[in-house]
Design a protein around this nucleic acid. Structure first.
Lengths: 245, 245
DNA sequence: CTTCCTCCTATAACGATGTTATGTATCGGT
DNA sequence: ACCGATACATAACATCGTTATAGGAGGAAG
């Protein structure tokens, strides 16, 4: 393959090659020798610049959270706080699906080759809350929740806790969608994630009509997501066509 | 260490040793040579009985889903359908936290040593929906949702979709809790998972008062979870104090 | 009982991994 | 122009999954 990354320091080229190879061939492909060969260096480059494969992977994780944070920061805020929250969720899912392997690695879910590493602790590894980039990304969500609460749309006495709830829901959905649980089409989005967030927001105090209006506003303003079908007005949960009780 | 599992076929002892070692030392410890040595056999046993490490890991995954299904089947159903749903969620979390490494492996998230395997496809690997045991486990949730809908407590025109929503929320929370996002105490449960499910159920049509009554009923009837603090009445989401594990 | 066949097993080797040791070169500062 | 530090390539080591090969246990048929 073309040994790309002709510019930048050896360290930067190694990191770029690792991220590229991760997305292309999965975590198993993150190996010292092929990576070094790809940039035209020898294996030692991994050790002089990172200290070993585990540290290189930590840097990949850090870079992943930085890109994640950048992706979330790109969603502009409006005067509709719930629409902003929904847009944030869409951006979240978009990043995760566009960078599946990276997303998994970021949350410590994939354990690449390097097993020499001594007991990579599950809790304190390269976890989101232990990385400043991860905290920064989460704070986008906390901020959106805080603004939504201040606007009176939802009740969030503890914005961090509410943000954790939304994060849990989105994170879980995204991972299940990645494993193909909801089918490989876009069904899962309108059938599961969308009603999930809507129902959660209803439970937080907003009305269903207002939420759906905000959701429509998101699709209207940002044509970046026009490939996602618009929501349908109606009752509680979702796609079903039957009448209510 | 003590080469346990003196009874059973070589295949069964290998599988048992693998599950034990996984829980004790993480996925990196699932290696052919140490595993075979643990039961007093040679490395070849892995290949004559499984065909290779990937197939052995697939069997571990299958066994994990079988135990998961058994754990969910153990929750008895009452005439309070929402209480049954909540009990199911508690059992779900309990299994995940009691078998963290196994849980991660089950959902195809961990990629142990074996990288020789040719491109373990993310979507079609040992995923829940591709295993009959996994489908059976998920059906417990679908059934509980269906009964809750039939009882009129929630509106679920599409029980499978609603089950997918609840699954997403619980799955995401559990994984984030496992990585230590919500702190290493039990705070996350009452501060995040409990209000998350409550808010979701409110969005699905039930009233907050009824849900909290059902939750109290769960703690009352099943003393197996008495180490989890009871819910506090009140508004949407909030924090509270909890006990240990 | 003998013979043969089939499975299971142990030993040893092969390729490839992360890592380390060692010697060499290249660069920057004084 | 010298010197120290840093980066580099080569080669070796231990270990991994896997495979080839030969030996042995247990039953079925003669």
């Amino acid at each position: 393959m073309g040994e790309a990354e002709r510019q930048g320091t050896v360290r930067e080229r190694l990191l770029a090659a690792a991220i590229e190879k991760l997305a292309a061939s999965g975590p198993e492909a993150l190996q010292a020798r092929p990576l070094a060969a790809e940039i035209g260096a020898s294996t030692m480059a991994v050790y002089t610049h990172f200290g070993g494969m585990p540290q290189l992977l930590d840097e990949v994780t850090r870079e992943g959270f930085a890109r994640f944070e950048a992706g979330l920061a790109r969603v502009e805020r409006s005067d509709d706080t719930i629409a902003d929250l929904l847009a944030l969720g869409i951006a979240y899912r978009q990043f995760a699906l566009d960078n599946q392997q990276l997303y998994r690695l970021m949350f410590g879910l994939t354990t690449p080759g390097t097993r020499r590493t001594k007991e990579r602790d599950l809790t304190t590894a390269g976890s989101p809350t232990s990385l400043s980039e991860g905290i920064s990304a989460f704070n986008h969500l906390v901020g959106a929740v805080t603004r939504a609460a201040e606007s009176g749309r939802i009740a969030a006495a503890d914005p961090v806790a509410v943000a954790g709830q939304i994060w849990s829901a989105t994170h879980g959905y995204v991972l299940l969608e990645m494993t193909g649980v909801f089918g490989h089409e876009g069904h899962g989005l309108v059938r599961t994630l969308q009603p999930l967030i809507i129902n959660l927001l209803v439970g937080l105090g907003d009305t269903r009509a207002n939420i759906e209006a905000s959701l429509a506003r998101v699709f209207a303003t940002s044509r970046r997501y026009h490939h996602i079908s618009a929501p349908q007005r109606g009752r509680p949960s979702d796609a079903g066509t039957t009448a209510t009780s």
